[in-house]
Design a protein around this nucleic acid. Structure first.
Lengths: 257, 257
DNA sequence: CGCGCACTTGAAGCCAATCAAATCGGGTGG
DNA sequence: CCACCCGATTTGATTGGCTTCAAGTGCGCG
Protein backbone atom coordinates (compact mmCIF):
# COMPACT_ATOMS: atom_id res chain seq x y z
CA UNK A 1 0.00 0.00 0.00
CA UNK A 2 0.85 3.65 -0.13
CA UNK A 3 3.47 3.71 -2.82
CA UNK A 4 3.72 6.11 -5.61
CA UNK A 5 5.72 5.97 -8.76
CA UNK A 6 5.29 8.19 -11.73
CA UNK A 7 8.04 6.46 -13.58
CA UNK A 8 7.29 3.07 -15.00
CA UNK A 9 10.79 1.93 -14.37
CA UNK A 10 12.18 -1.55 -14.54
CA UNK A 11 11.69 -2.26 -10.84
CA UNK A 12 15.46 -2.38 -10.62
CA UNK A 13 17.60 0.66 -10.18
CA UNK A 14 15.95 4.02 -10.30
CA UNK A 15 15.28 4.95 -13.85
CA UNK A 16 16.85 8.26 -14.82
CA UNK A 17 19.53 9.67 -12.55
CA UNK A 18 17.54 12.79 -11.89
CA UNK A 19 19.58 13.67 -8.85
CA UNK A 20 22.70 12.63 -7.06
CA UNK A 21 21.89 10.20 -4.28
CA UNK A 22 22.05 11.70 -0.88
CA UNK A 23 23.78 10.06 2.01
CA UNK A 24 22.14 9.72 5.40
CA UNK A 25 20.86 11.83 7.01
CA UNK A 26 19.27 12.75 3.76
CA UNK A 27 16.90 15.55 3.06
CA UNK A 28 13.78 14.30 1.43
CA UNK A 29 12.89 15.65 -1.94
CA UNK A 30 9.62 17.52 -2.21
CA UNK A 31 8.91 16.98 -5.86
CA UNK A 32 5.20 16.61 -6.23
CA UNK A 33 4.33 12.97 -6.34
CA UNK A 34 0.81 11.66 -6.44
CA UNK A 35 -0.65 8.37 -5.40
CA UNK A 36 -3.44 9.09 -7.84
CA UNK A 37 -1.06 8.78 -10.76
CA UNK A 38 1.31 6.22 -9.31
CA UNK A 39 2.12 3.10 -11.27
CA UNK A 40 2.51 1.09 -8.06
CA UNK A 41 -0.90 2.13 -6.88
CA UNK A 42 -2.63 -1.15 -7.51
CA UNK A 43 -0.01 -3.01 -5.50
CA UNK A 44 0.02 -0.33 -2.88
CA UNK A 45 -3.53 0.70 -2.16
CA UNK A 46 -5.89 -2.18 -2.79
CA UNK A 47 -9.02 -0.30 -3.82
CA UNK A 48 -11.66 0.98 -1.43
CA UNK A 49 -10.27 4.49 -1.35
CA UNK A 50 -12.67 7.19 -2.36
CA UNK A 51 -11.48 10.16 -4.37
CA UNK A 52 -11.42 12.46 -1.34
CA UNK A 53 -9.52 9.84 0.64
CA UNK A 54 -6.97 9.69 -2.09
CA UNK A 55 -6.58 13.42 -2.24
CA UNK A 56 -6.07 13.68 1.48
CA UNK A 57 -3.65 10.85 1.41
CA UNK A 58 -1.67 12.52 -1.34
CA UNK A 59 -1.30 15.47 0.96
CA UNK A 60 0.48 13.58 3.71
CA UNK A 61 2.74 11.66 1.35
CA UNK A 62 4.44 14.64 -0.07
CA UNK A 63 8.05 13.57 0.09
CA UNK A 64 10.26 10.83 -1.23
CA UNK A 65 13.74 9.78 -0.36
CA UNK A 66 16.50 8.13 -2.33
CA UNK A 67 18.54 5.42 -0.69
CA UNK A 68 21.70 4.12 -2.29
CA UNK A 69 22.47 0.45 -2.51
CA UNK A 70 23.77 -0.77 0.83
CA UNK A 71 22.63 2.31 2.72
CA UNK A 72 20.12 2.17 5.53
CA UNK A 73 16.67 3.70 5.33
CA UNK A 74 16.59 3.35 9.09
CA UNK A 75 18.47 1.41 11.71
CA UNK A 76 17.63 -0.39 14.92
CA UNK A 77 16.88 2.10 17.70
CA UNK A 78 16.41 5.01 15.34
CA UNK A 79 13.47 7.04 16.60
CA UNK A 80 10.36 6.13 14.72
CA UNK A 81 8.79 8.94 12.74
CA UNK A 82 7.57 7.57 9.46
CA UNK A 83 6.64 4.48 7.64
CA UNK A 84 7.80 4.07 4.09
CA UNK A 85 6.45 2.65 0.88
CA UNK A 86 8.94 1.37 -1.64
CA UNK A 87 8.54 3.36 -4.84
CA UNK A 88 11.33 1.76 -6.77
CA UNK A 89 14.09 -0.67 -5.93
CA UNK A 90 14.09 -3.09 -3.04
CA UNK A 91 15.09 -3.47 0.59
CA UNK A 92 15.85 -6.07 3.18
CA UNK A 93 14.94 -5.70 6.85
CA UNK A 94 17.32 -7.27 9.31
CA UNK A 95 17.52 -7.93 13.03
CA UNK A 96 20.94 -8.49 14.54
CA UNK A 97 21.91 -10.91 17.27
CA UNK A 98 24.43 -9.74 19.82
CA UNK A 99 27.06 -12.07 18.38
CA UNK A 100 26.74 -10.43 14.99
CA UNK A 101 24.67 -13.04 13.24
CA UNK A 102 21.77 -11.52 11.43
CA UNK A 103 18.30 -12.66 10.55
CA UNK A 104 16.71 -11.16 7.48
CA UNK A 105 13.05 -10.57 8.35
CA UNK A 106 11.87 -9.69 4.90
CA UNK A 107 12.61 -8.53 1.39
CA UNK A 108 10.52 -5.60 0.28
CA UNK A 109 9.71 -4.85 -3.32
CA UNK A 110 8.12 -1.82 -4.93
CA UNK A 111 4.68 -1.19 -3.52
CA UNK A 112 5.41 -2.74 -0.16
CA UNK A 113 5.55 -1.04 3.19
CA UNK A 114 8.48 -0.70 5.56
CA UNK A 115 8.87 0.40 9.13
CA UNK A 116 5.75 -0.80 10.92
CA UNK A 117 7.93 -2.35 13.60
CA UNK A 118 8.57 1.14 14.93
CA UNK A 119 5.04 1.81 16.10
CA UNK A 120 5.42 -0.43 19.11
CA UNK A 121 8.19 1.30 21.04
CA UNK A 122 8.51 4.40 18.86
CA UNK A 123 11.90 3.12 17.87
CA UNK A 124 12.72 0.83 15.01
CA UNK A 125 13.61 -2.70 15.94
CA UNK A 126 15.30 -3.61 12.68
CA UNK A 127 17.58 -2.21 10.00
CA UNK A 128 16.20 -1.51 6.56
CA UNK A 129 18.92 -1.72 3.94
CA UNK A 130 18.55 -0.96 0.25
CA UNK A 131 19.49 -3.89 -1.99
CA UNK A 132 19.93 -1.50 -4.91
CA UNK A 133 19.56 2.20 -5.45
CA UNK A 134 15.99 2.74 -4.38
CA UNK A 135 13.42 5.33 -3.52
CA UNK A 136 10.66 5.40 -0.95
CA UNK A 137 7.61 7.48 -0.21
CA UNK A 138 7.71 8.93 3.27
CA UNK A 139 4.53 8.68 5.29
CA UNK A 140 4.86 10.62 8.55
CA UNK A 141 3.25 8.50 11.21
CA UNK A 142 1.61 11.28 13.18
CA UNK A 143 -0.17 12.44 10.06
CA UNK A 144 -1.17 8.91 9.20
CA UNK A 145 -2.59 8.40 12.67
CA UNK A 146 -4.50 11.61 12.39
CA UNK A 147 -5.92 10.73 9.03
CA UNK A 148 -6.92 7.32 10.29
CA UNK A 149 -9.24 9.01 12.73
CA UNK A 150 -10.84 10.88 9.84
CA UNK A 151 -11.06 8.19 7.20
CA UNK A 152 -12.52 4.82 7.99
CA UNK A 153 -11.19 3.36 4.76
CA UNK A 154 -7.67 4.42 5.59
CA UNK A 155 -7.90 3.12 9.11
CA UNK A 156 -9.02 -0.24 7.84
CA UNK A 157 -6.26 -0.29 5.31
CA UNK A 158 -3.60 0.43 7.90
CA UNK A 159 -4.90 -2.25 10.23
CA UNK A 160 -5.11 -4.70 7.36
CA UNK A 161 -1.58 -3.96 6.32
CA UNK A 162 -0.30 -4.55 9.83
CA UNK A 163 -2.25 -7.76 10.13
CA UNK A 164 -0.87 -8.84 6.76
CA UNK A 165 2.61 -8.37 8.11
CA UNK A 166 1.76 -10.57 11.07
CA UNK A 167 0.45 -13.27 8.75
CA UNK A 168 3.46 -13.00 6.47
CA UNK A 169 5.80 -13.42 9.41
CA UNK A 170 3.80 -16.41 10.62
CA UNK A 171 4.37 -18.25 7.39
CA UNK A 172 8.05 -17.42 7.51
CA UNK A 173 8.19 -18.92 10.97
CA UNK A 174 6.55 -22.01 9.59
CA UNK A 175 9.26 -22.14 6.97
CA UNK A 176 12.06 -21.63 9.48
CA UNK A 177 10.63 -24.04 12.00
CA UNK A 178 9.56 -26.97 9.91
CA UNK A 179 11.01 -27.02 6.40
CA UNK A 180 14.11 -28.62 4.90
CA UNK A 181 16.68 -26.51 3.12
CA UNK A 182 15.31 -27.65 -0.20
CA UNK A 183 11.75 -26.70 0.69
CA UNK A 184 12.82 -23.33 1.99
CA UNK A 185 14.54 -22.35 -1.21
CA UNK A 186 11.68 -23.63 -3.37
CA UNK A 187 9.21 -21.74 -1.23
CA UNK A 188 11.29 -18.60 -1.45
CA UNK A 189 11.48 -18.72 -5.23
CA UNK A 190 7.76 -19.32 -5.58
CA UNK A 191 7.00 -16.45 -3.26
CA UNK A 192 9.23 -14.09 -5.19
CA UNK A 193 7.76 -15.34 -8.43
CA UNK A 194 4.21 -14.53 -7.45
CA UNK A 195 5.21 -11.12 -6.17
CA UNK A 196 6.96 -10.35 -9.44
CA UNK A 197 3.89 -11.43 -11.30
CA UNK A 198 1.70 -9.21 -9.14
CA UNK A 199 3.90 -6.33 -10.26
CA UNK A 200 3.47 -7.11 -13.90
CA UNK A 201 6.76 -8.89 -14.48
CA UNK A 202 7.29 -12.38 -15.70
CA UNK A 203 6.80 -14.90 -12.91
CA UNK A 204 9.25 -17.24 -14.62
CA UNK A 205 12.27 -15.10 -15.17
CA UNK A 206 13.62 -12.36 -12.98
CA UNK A 207 16.63 -11.01 -11.21
CA UNK A 208 17.46 -11.83 -7.64
CA UNK A 209 18.44 -8.59 -6.03
CA UNK A 210 20.02 -10.17 -2.98
CA UNK A 211 23.16 -12.23 -2.51
CA UNK A 212 23.18 -15.92 -1.63
CA UNK A 213 24.23 -14.91 1.84
CA UNK A 214 21.24 -12.61 2.24
CA UNK A 215 18.94 -15.38 1.07
CA UNK A 216 20.59 -17.66 3.57
CA UNK A 217 20.12 -15.16 6.36
CA UNK A 218 16.47 -14.97 5.40
CA UNK A 219 15.94 -18.72 5.11
CA UNK A 220 17.92 -19.68 8.17
CA UNK A 221 20.78 -21.41 6.40
CA UNK A 222 24.30 -20.86 5.14
CA UNK A 223 25.08 -19.38 1.76
CA UNK A 224 26.75 -22.59 0.64
CA UNK A 225 23.57 -24.50 1.28
CA UNK A 226 21.56 -22.01 -0.73
CA UNK A 227 24.00 -22.39 -3.57
CA UNK A 228 23.81 -26.16 -3.40
CA UNK A 229 20.03 -26.09 -3.55
CA UNK A 230 20.16 -23.87 -6.61
CA UNK A 231 22.56 -26.32 -8.23
CA UNK A 232 20.34 -29.22 -7.32
CA UNK A 233 17.24 -27.56 -8.77
CA UNK A 234 19.19 -26.85 -11.90
CA UNK A 235 20.38 -30.46 -12.20
CA UNK A 236 16.80 -31.61 -11.72
CA UNK A 237 15.52 -29.23 -14.36
CA UNK A 238 13.40 -27.09 -12.08
CA UNK A 239 15.22 -23.82 -12.64
CA UNK A 240 18.04 -22.30 -14.61
CA UNK A 241 20.37 -19.87 -12.91
CA UNK A 242 23.21 -17.70 -13.98
CA UNK A 243 24.38 -15.68 -11.05
CA UNK A 244 21.48 -13.51 -9.99
CA UNK A 245 19.42 -14.28 -13.08
CA UNK A 246 16.87 -16.97 -12.49
CA UNK A 247 14.43 -18.75 -14.72
CA UNK A 248 11.83 -21.04 -13.25
CA UNK A 249 11.41 -23.96 -15.64
CA UNK A 250 9.06 -26.28 -13.79
CA UNK A 251 6.91 -24.38 -11.37
CA UNK A 252 4.72 -27.36 -10.48
CA UNK A 253 7.72 -29.45 -9.52
CA UNK A 254 8.94 -26.57 -7.39
CA UNK A 255 5.60 -26.52 -5.63
CA UNK A 256 5.79 -30.23 -4.96
CA UNK A 257 9.22 -30.05 -3.30
CA UNK B 1 -4.16 -5.26 26.36
CA UNK B 2 -7.86 -5.49 26.80
CA UNK B 3 -8.19 -8.27 29.30
CA UNK B 4 -10.42 -8.33 32.25
CA UNK B 5 -10.49 -10.56 35.24
CA UNK B 6 -12.42 -9.96 38.36
CA UNK B 7 -11.09 -13.08 39.96
CA UNK B 8 -7.54 -13.06 41.18
CA UNK B 9 -7.10 -16.63 40.21
CA UNK B 10 -3.95 -18.66 39.96
CA UNK B 11 -3.33 -18.01 36.27
CA UNK B 12 -3.85 -21.69 35.72
CA UNK B 13 -7.21 -23.30 35.43
CA UNK B 14 -10.26 -21.18 35.93
CA UNK B 15 -10.83 -20.71 39.57
CA UNK B 16 -14.25 -21.87 40.69
CA UNK B 17 -16.26 -24.01 38.34
CA UNK B 18 -19.04 -21.50 38.13
CA UNK B 19 -20.47 -23.05 35.02
CA UNK B 20 -20.10 -26.15 32.94
CA UNK B 21 -17.74 -25.57 30.05
CA UNK B 22 -19.44 -25.17 26.76
CA UNK B 23 -18.32 -26.92 23.64
CA UNK B 24 -17.90 -25.10 20.35
CA UNK B 25 -19.83 -23.32 19.03
CA UNK B 26 -20.24 -21.83 22.44
CA UNK B 27 -22.55 -19.13 23.55
CA UNK B 28 -20.67 -16.38 25.26
CA UNK B 29 -21.64 -15.51 28.75
CA UNK B 30 -22.91 -12.03 29.35
CA UNK B 31 -21.97 -11.72 32.96
CA UNK B 32 -20.98 -8.16 33.59
CA UNK B 33 -17.22 -7.91 33.46
CA UNK B 34 -15.32 -4.69 33.69
CA UNK B 35 -11.91 -3.70 32.49
CA UNK B 36 -11.98 -1.03 35.16
CA UNK B 37 -11.91 -3.63 37.88
CA UNK B 38 -9.87 -6.27 36.08
CA UNK B 39 -6.84 -7.73 37.73
CA UNK B 40 -5.14 -8.20 34.38
CA UNK B 41 -5.65 -4.60 33.51
CA UNK B 42 -2.09 -3.49 33.98
CA UNK B 43 -0.84 -6.21 31.68
CA UNK B 44 -3.65 -5.59 29.27
CA UNK B 45 -4.12 -1.87 28.84
CA UNK B 46 -0.83 -0.11 29.38
CA UNK B 47 -2.09 3.20 30.75
CA UNK B 48 -3.06 6.18 28.68
CA UNK B 49 -6.75 5.42 28.78
CA UNK B 50 -8.92 8.14 30.16
CA UNK B 51 -11.91 7.30 32.31
CA UNK B 52 -14.39 7.88 29.48
CA UNK B 53 -12.26 5.73 27.16
CA UNK B 54 -12.37 2.99 29.69
CA UNK B 55 -16.10 3.23 30.12
CA UNK B 56 -16.69 3.07 26.41
CA UNK B 57 -14.33 0.20 26.09
CA UNK B 58 -16.11 -1.68 28.84
CA UNK B 59 -19.23 -1.36 26.77
CA UNK B 60 -17.87 -3.23 23.75
CA UNK B 61 -16.22 -5.95 25.80
CA UNK B 62 -19.35 -7.27 27.31
CA UNK B 63 -18.90 -10.97 26.85
CA UNK B 64 -16.49 -13.70 27.82
CA UNK B 65 -16.11 -17.22 26.66
CA UNK B 66 -14.82 -20.35 28.30
CA UNK B 67 -12.61 -22.69 26.34
CA UNK B 68 -11.75 -26.13 27.62
CA UNK B 69 -8.27 -27.51 27.52
CA UNK B 70 -7.50 -28.75 24.03
CA UNK B 71 -10.45 -26.96 22.45
CA UNK B 72 -10.07 -24.30 19.81
CA UNK B 73 -10.99 -20.67 20.34
CA UNK B 74 -10.86 -20.35 16.56
CA UNK B 75 -9.44 -22.33 13.69
CA UNK B 76 -7.73 -21.55 10.42
CA UNK B 77 -10.24 -20.20 7.89
CA UNK B 78 -12.87 -19.43 10.50
CA UNK B 79 -14.47 -16.12 9.59
CA UNK B 80 -12.91 -13.34 11.59
CA UNK B 81 -15.29 -11.51 13.87
CA UNK B 82 -13.53 -10.75 17.10
CA UNK B 83 -10.21 -10.49 18.74
CA UNK B 84 -9.76 -11.97 22.17
CA UNK B 85 -7.94 -11.11 25.33
CA UNK B 86 -6.93 -13.96 27.58
CA UNK B 87 -8.61 -13.49 30.94
CA UNK B 88 -7.39 -16.64 32.57
CA UNK B 89 -5.52 -19.68 31.38
CA UNK B 90 -3.32 -19.86 28.31
CA UNK B 91 -3.35 -20.64 24.62
CA UNK B 92 -1.10 -21.63 21.78
CA UNK B 93 -1.54 -20.39 18.24
CA UNK B 94 -0.54 -22.79 15.51
CA UNK B 95 -0.17 -22.82 11.76
CA UNK B 96 -0.29 -26.16 10.00
CA UNK B 97 1.75 -27.29 7.04
CA UNK B 98 0.00 -29.40 4.44
CA UNK B 99 1.96 -32.47 5.51
CA UNK B 100 0.61 -32.12 9.04
CA UNK B 101 3.64 -30.67 10.72
CA UNK B 102 2.76 -27.72 12.82
CA UNK B 103 4.51 -24.55 13.82
CA UNK B 104 3.49 -22.97 17.08
CA UNK B 105 3.46 -19.22 16.50
CA UNK B 106 3.04 -18.17 20.06
CA UNK B 107 1.99 -18.98 23.60
CA UNK B 108 -0.47 -16.52 25.05
CA UNK B 109 -0.84 -15.87 28.75
CA UNK B 110 -3.45 -13.94 30.66
CA UNK B 111 -3.58 -10.33 29.54
CA UNK B 112 -2.40 -11.06 26.03
CA UNK B 113 -4.31 -10.67 22.82
CA UNK B 114 -5.28 -13.31 20.29
CA UNK B 115 -6.66 -13.25 16.79
CA UNK B 116 -5.08 -10.23 15.13
CA UNK B 117 -4.08 -12.42 12.21
CA UNK B 118 -7.71 -12.39 11.10
CA UNK B 119 -7.85 -8.72 10.23
CA UNK B 120 -5.89 -9.22 7.03
CA UNK B 121 -8.19 -11.51 5.08
CA UNK B 122 -11.16 -11.49 7.45
CA UNK B 123 -10.42 -15.13 8.12
CA UNK B 124 -8.12 -16.50 10.72
CA UNK B 125 -4.85 -17.89 9.49
CA UNK B 126 -4.04 -19.95 12.55
CA UNK B 127 -5.62 -22.16 15.18
CA UNK B 128 -5.85 -20.96 18.76
CA UNK B 129 -5.93 -23.88 21.19
CA UNK B 130 -6.39 -23.67 24.94
CA UNK B 131 -3.53 -25.23 26.87
CA UNK B 132 -5.76 -25.50 29.93
CA UNK B 133 -9.32 -24.57 30.78
CA UNK B 134 -9.30 -20.88 29.98
CA UNK B 135 -11.47 -17.87 29.48
CA UNK B 136 -11.23 -14.95 27.11
CA UNK B 137 -12.80 -11.55 26.72
CA UNK B 138 -14.48 -11.14 23.36
CA UNK B 139 -13.83 -7.91 21.54
CA UNK B 140 -16.01 -7.66 18.42
CA UNK B 141 -13.82 -6.25 15.71
CA UNK B 142 -16.42 -4.02 14.07
CA UNK B 143 -17.04 -2.31 17.36
CA UNK B 144 -13.35 -1.97 18.02
CA UNK B 145 -12.84 -0.39 14.61
CA UNK B 146 -15.66 1.97 15.26
CA UNK B 147 -14.34 2.98 18.63
CA UNK B 148 -10.89 3.50 17.17
CA UNK B 149 -12.33 6.26 15.03
CA UNK B 150 -13.70 7.90 18.15
CA UNK B 151 -10.86 7.48 20.58
CA UNK B 152 -7.36 8.44 19.64
CA UNK B 153 -5.94 6.65 22.65
CA UNK B 154 -7.60 3.41 21.68
CA UNK B 155 -6.52 3.70 18.09
CA UNK B 156 -2.95 4.17 19.18
CA UNK B 157 -3.22 1.25 21.52
CA UNK B 158 -4.51 -1.07 18.81
CA UNK B 159 -1.82 -0.05 16.39
CA UNK B 160 0.81 -0.45 19.07
CA UNK B 161 -0.45 -3.89 19.94
CA UNK B 162 -0.29 -4.98 16.32
CA UNK B 163 3.17 -3.56 15.91
CA UNK B 164 4.21 -5.34 19.09
CA UNK B 165 3.07 -8.59 17.57
CA UNK B 166 5.21 -7.89 14.51
CA UNK B 167 8.22 -7.22 16.70
CA UNK B 168 7.59 -10.30 18.79
CA UNK B 169 7.43 -12.45 15.68
CA UNK B 170 10.63 -10.89 14.39
CA UNK B 171 12.54 -11.99 17.42
CA UNK B 172 11.11 -15.46 17.14
CA UNK B 173 12.35 -15.57 13.57
CA UNK B 174 15.74 -14.57 14.82
CA UNK B 175 15.58 -17.47 17.24
CA UNK B 176 14.45 -19.95 14.60
CA UNK B 177 16.89 -18.74 12.01
CA UNK B 178 20.09 -18.32 13.93
CA UNK B 179 20.13 -20.03 17.31
CA UNK B 180 21.29 -23.45 18.49
CA UNK B 181 18.88 -25.78 20.25
CA UNK B 182 20.45 -24.86 23.56
CA UNK B 183 20.06 -21.14 22.97
CA UNK B 184 16.48 -21.56 21.87
CA UNK B 185 15.44 -23.33 25.02
CA UNK B 186 17.32 -20.88 27.25
CA UNK B 187 15.73 -17.98 25.43
CA UNK B 188 12.31 -19.53 25.75
CA UNK B 189 12.64 -20.02 29.49
CA UNK B 190 13.87 -16.49 30.02
CA UNK B 191 11.03 -15.10 27.99
CA UNK B 192 8.45 -17.05 29.95
CA UNK B 193 10.14 -16.06 33.17
CA UNK B 194 9.87 -12.37 32.48
CA UNK B 195 6.28 -12.68 31.40
CA UNK B 196 5.44 -14.53 34.60
CA UNK B 197 7.14 -11.83 36.56
CA UNK B 198 5.18 -9.15 34.72
CA UNK B 199 2.04 -10.94 35.90
CA UNK B 200 3.12 -10.90 39.49
CA UNK B 201 4.35 -14.49 39.71
CA UNK B 202 7.78 -15.65 40.66
CA UNK B 203 10.15 -15.37 37.73
CA UNK B 204 12.15 -18.29 39.09
CA UNK B 205 9.56 -20.94 39.62
CA UNK B 206 6.50 -21.67 37.55
CA UNK B 207 4.55 -24.29 35.70
CA UNK B 208 4.99 -24.97 32.03
CA UNK B 209 1.54 -25.27 30.59
CA UNK B 210 2.62 -26.87 27.34
CA UNK B 211 4.11 -30.27 26.52
CA UNK B 212 7.67 -30.83 25.36
CA UNK B 213 6.30 -31.42 21.93
CA UNK B 214 4.51 -28.07 21.88
CA UNK B 215 7.69 -26.34 23.00
CA UNK B 216 9.51 -28.14 20.22
CA UNK B 217 6.94 -27.06 17.67
CA UNK B 218 7.42 -23.52 18.87
CA UNK B 219 11.21 -23.63 18.92
CA UNK B 220 11.64 -25.50 15.66
CA UNK B 221 12.97 -28.73 17.13
CA UNK B 222 11.90 -32.20 18.23
CA UNK B 223 10.54 -32.98 21.65
CA UNK B 224 13.49 -35.24 22.42
CA UNK B 225 15.85 -32.36 21.82
CA UNK B 226 13.87 -30.11 24.13
CA UNK B 227 14.02 -32.79 26.79
CA UNK B 228 17.76 -33.21 26.34
CA UNK B 229 18.33 -29.49 26.74
CA UNK B 230 16.31 -29.49 29.94
CA UNK B 231 18.42 -32.37 31.21
CA UNK B 232 21.60 -30.59 30.23
CA UNK B 233 20.58 -27.38 31.99
CA UNK B 234 19.74 -29.42 35.04
CA UNK B 235 23.11 -31.20 34.99
CA UNK B 236 24.83 -27.84 34.66
CA UNK B 237 22.86 -26.39 37.55
CA UNK B 238 20.97 -23.78 35.57
CA UNK B 239 17.48 -25.09 36.26
CA UNK B 240 15.63 -27.77 38.15
CA UNK B 241 12.75 -29.53 36.51
CA UNK B 242 10.17 -32.03 37.57
CA UNK B 243 7.82 -32.65 34.72
CA UNK B 244 6.12 -29.37 34.01
CA UNK B 245 7.41 -27.69 37.14
CA UNK B 246 10.47 -25.59 36.52
CA UNK B 247 12.77 -23.63 38.74
CA UNK B 248 15.36 -21.34 37.28
CA UNK B 249 18.46 -21.58 39.47
CA UNK B 250 21.03 -19.51 37.61
CA UNK B 251 19.38 -16.92 35.46
CA UNK B 252 22.62 -15.18 34.50
CA UNK B 253 24.09 -18.40 33.19
CA UNK B 254 20.93 -18.98 31.23
CA UNK B 255 21.32 -15.55 29.67
CA UNK B 256 24.90 -16.30 28.70
CA UNK B 257 24.04 -19.50 26.85
C1' DC C 1 44.68 -6.68 -16.43
C1' DG C 2 44.10 -8.10 -12.03
C1' DC C 3 41.94 -7.37 -7.78
C1' DG C 4 38.05 -8.34 -4.84
C1' DC C 5 33.77 -10.21 -4.20
C1' DA C 6 30.19 -13.47 -5.14
C1' DC C 7 29.47 -17.90 -6.14
C1' DT C 8 30.29 -22.96 -6.70
C1' DT C 9 31.89 -27.34 -5.32
C1' DG C 10 34.13 -30.93 -2.54
C1' DA C 11 35.33 -33.23 1.89
C1' DA C 12 34.93 -33.74 6.69
C1' DG C 13 32.65 -32.91 11.05
C1' DC C 14 28.91 -31.92 14.10
C1' DC C 15 24.41 -31.10 15.79
C1' DA C 16 19.91 -32.35 15.87
C1' DA C 17 16.65 -35.88 13.95
C1' DT C 18 15.34 -40.47 14.02
C1' DC C 19 14.65 -44.84 15.95
C1' DA C 20 14.16 -47.44 20.00
C1' DA C 21 13.43 -48.56 24.75
C1' DA C 22 12.73 -47.64 29.45
C1' DT C 23 10.62 -44.82 33.12
C1' DC C 24 7.41 -41.71 35.09
C1' DG C 25 2.92 -40.02 36.34
C1' DG C 26 -1.86 -39.38 36.31
C1' DG C 27 -6.15 -41.28 35.97
C1' DT C 28 -9.35 -45.35 35.83
C1' DG C 29 -11.69 -49.39 36.89
C1' DG C 30 -11.80 -53.51 39.51
C1' DC D 1 -6.32 -49.30 47.55
C1' DC D 2 -3.95 -51.18 43.99
C1' DA D 3 -3.10 -52.87 39.29
C1' DC D 4 -3.08 -51.27 35.00
C1' DC D 5 -2.94 -48.32 31.00
C1' DC D 6 -1.68 -44.57 28.24
C1' DG D 7 0.43 -40.48 27.24
C1' DA D 8 4.42 -37.72 28.41
C1' DT D 9 9.12 -37.70 29.26
C1' DT D 10 13.81 -39.22 29.48
C1' DT D 11 17.75 -41.45 27.72
C1' DG D 12 20.65 -44.05 24.50
C1' DA D 13 22.40 -45.37 19.82
C1' DT D 14 22.60 -44.29 15.22
C1' DT D 15 21.80 -41.62 11.09
C1' DG D 16 21.61 -37.84 8.09
C1' DG D 17 21.46 -33.09 6.66
C1' DC D 18 23.47 -28.93 7.12
C1' DT D 19 27.59 -26.42 8.48
C1' DT D 20 32.32 -25.76 8.38
C1' DC D 21 36.53 -25.55 6.16
C1' DA D 22 38.87 -25.23 2.01
C1' DA D 23 39.86 -24.56 -2.76
C1' DG D 24 38.77 -23.00 -7.05
C1' DT D 25 35.93 -20.40 -10.61
C1' DG D 26 33.45 -16.55 -12.57
C1' DC D 27 32.81 -11.86 -13.19
C1' DG D 28 32.30 -6.80 -12.72
C1' DC D 29 34.98 -2.85 -12.12
C1' DG D 30 38.76 0.33 -11.32
Amino acid sequence: MFTETDCADEHCALSPPQAAYQSRPAKASRTQVRCSSCSMRSACMPSGFSAPDLTRFDAIVSATRLVKRGDALYRTNDPFQSIYAVRAGSFKTVVMHRDGREQVIGFHLAGEVLGLDGVYTEHHSSDAIALEDSSVCIIPYVLLEQMCAESKALQQQVLRTMSGEIVRESSLMMLLGTMSAEQRVANFLLNLSSRMQARGYSPNEFNLRMTREEMGNYLGMKLETVSRMFSKFQRDGLVQTRGKQIRIVDIEALERV
